[in-house]
Design a protein around this nucleic acid. Structure first.
Lengths: 206, 206
DNA sequence: GTCTATACCGGGATAGAC
DNA sequence: GTCTATCCCGGTATAGAC
């Protein structure tokens, strides 16, 4: 029997160590990208040696996948939160999303940087991001469909085309903001876009 | 006196060589990013040795800047073309832009990849892309302003906010398309977005 | 202007002790 | 599970001949 105790056990300690390393790696990847970050960079920041690091993740790509996985848990939590809301209030939640992202700019940057590094088929994260976008598009499209069914959106918009467009805009706003935070107020522009979207979906509606 | 002749002179030959190298570098940067590409990769593709390559550009960052400069000439040509059109026809030119970009996917990818690698202040291309986005936003905003003055767009949209939003959407559509060309038809989605935009700018207009 | 040769560093990864 | 030591590769860049 392996008794569970108050004091962290061996496995628990290891898990914590892993989490610390993933956090360190995420910070470095956001700054310099996957390719621009060395295992030594991550190891130094996590207070471990390179072999110690590789013990947990096998190789550098394994570390990347762990970082991506962690980020996904975070964004999934947000998606669930959004889906738990009234359909009519989801648009209004967008600025709140932006506000939260602004607090954790590192996470936003991580996503933007890793997607760009994953454009090429065969790169370590490629499959993952392809799948992820497909499922995000499907979720948003389904939302639009239900809004249409409820009479909250014009029936003549193509849900998938609009879903692509919405994700595109949010991504693009984020990129411009990350590049030049002085010139682009992410919260204000997302707020403005939410109004655009509301107008767009309801324009000409009885 | 240095006579200009029919046969390419020494300087002309050198310029051509430079252009060939820049082309090769652009292709490699688009595929693997700046950081993921080695001078050896570029040299091999251009049919030259590494020292030969460095003779022309000094160092790797110099090569990057040359690639960026070339890409800019291309996009400036498009901007001028667009500005030469009737204001009312510019929206309809967007899909044509997308169609052209589709033919030269490498150039689109190059831009997307390099922007992401330039998010961090201090990276080789950072200043350049900050400036470039600022001027693109200014141009688009000015276009919106003149459309408003001509009664072609609702006067209550903030031109700069809308400019940010338009560039964001086009960038984001491009990213999704590059990541997953099977799932995202870039021409169709840009066409759809152009309609969105037209509706948005004129919705409720007398 | 392009080459060969080479310096020199930093990268990822492994072996094996503790 | 973490360390030290080490391997070996590939990276950028320079020196100097032609």
């Amino acid at each position: 029997m392996t008794p569970s105790r108050q004091v962290p056990g061996r496995q628990e300690r290891a898990r914590q160590r892993r989490e610390e390393i993933i956090t360190a790696a995420g910070e470095m990847f956001a700054r310099s990208g996957y390719r621009g970050t060395s295992l030594a960079d991550v190891a130094a920041r996590a207070g471990i040696t390179e072999p110690g690091l590789l013990h947990h993740f096998g190789n550098k790509a394994g570390l990347l996948l762990a970082v991506i996985e962690r980020r996904d848990l975070d964004s999934e939590a947000f998606a669930l939160e959004l889906l738990g809301m009234e359909p009519s209030g989801r648009l209004r939640a967008l600025p709140e999303f932006a506000r939260r992202n602004k607090q954790r700019a590192g996470l936003a940057k991580l996503f933007t940087v890793l997607v760009a590094e994953s454009l090429e088929p065969g790169s370590p994260g490629h499959e993952h991001f392809v799948d992820r976008y497909r499922s995000m598009r499907a979720i948003v499209a389904e939302n639009i469909r239900s809004a249409q069914a409820a009479g909250l959106a014009r029936p003549d918009v193509d849900p998938m085309a609009k879903a692509i467009e919405i994700l595109a805009t949010l991504d693009g706003l984020q990129t411009q903001w990350l590049l030049d935070p002085e010139a682009v107020d992410i919260v204000a522009t997302v707020e403005s876009y939410a109004r655009t979207l509301e107008r767009d979906l309801t324009c000409g509606l009885p």
